[in-house]
């Protein structure tokens, strides 16, 4: 199980880097889509089918389509980066990478064990529904009102005259 997790993590990293370094905006968006799918896989491995599917529905089914839409409407253009990767900068990047790895390793050694383990949480559909409508009712409602305000504002901005 651990190996599968690490392979999946490797793929998420690759896709995440693809989002940043992709020159074609559409390809970047699709990398983001694949990245979200690997995150959904993480949820499946952690035993929460519900969260995994919600991740796919919300991010893959909604948000990336919107991003793709915006890219199409603004026109597809290949972006050329405003920097050149020379031998010197490449060496710098590699060295910086090693430095970052060292820092991360030191951090992991010293502080990681101080972080408490996440408490058990029932992540089935029933469990999450229960938590949302009892313990976390107030934050849930506040978030929904915030989203509603966002929708109304979007309408006001989009419409020339209200």
């Amino acid at each position: 199980m651990k190996t599968v997790f690490y392979i999946n993590a490797l793929f998420s990293l690759i896709f995440a880097l693809g989002v940043i370094f992709g020159k074609n905006p559409l390809r970047s968006a699709l990398s983001l889509l694949l990245f979200f799918l690997t995150i959904a896989l993480d949820f499946f491995f952690a035993g929460s089918e519900y969260l995994g599917f919600v991740q796919i529905i919300v991010y893959a089914g909604g948000i990336i389509v919107m991003i793709a839409f915006v890219i199409i409407l603004l026109g597809l253009k290949k972006e050329s980066p405003d920097y050149d990767i020379t031998v010197r900068s490449f060496t710098g990047i590699i060295l910086l990478g090693f430095f970052a790895l060292g820092v991360l390793y030191g951090l992991a050694k010293s502080v990681l064990h101080l972080i408490p383990k996440a408490p058990y949480f029932d992540t089935s559909a029933a469990g999450i529904g229960d938590a949302l409508f009892s313990k976390y009712l107030l934050p849930f409602e506040v978030a929904s009102i915030l989203l509603l305000v966002g929708v109304v504002l979007a309408f006001i901005f989009a419409k020339k005259e209200v």
Binding site: Y50, I56, I57, A60, G61, G62, V65, A125
Partner: peptide, 10 residues
């Protein structure tokens, strides 16, 4: 049912 929705999303 969520699987169905996810599939139709993709």
């Amino acid at each position: 049912i969520l699987l169905l929705l996810a599939i139709s999303g993709i």
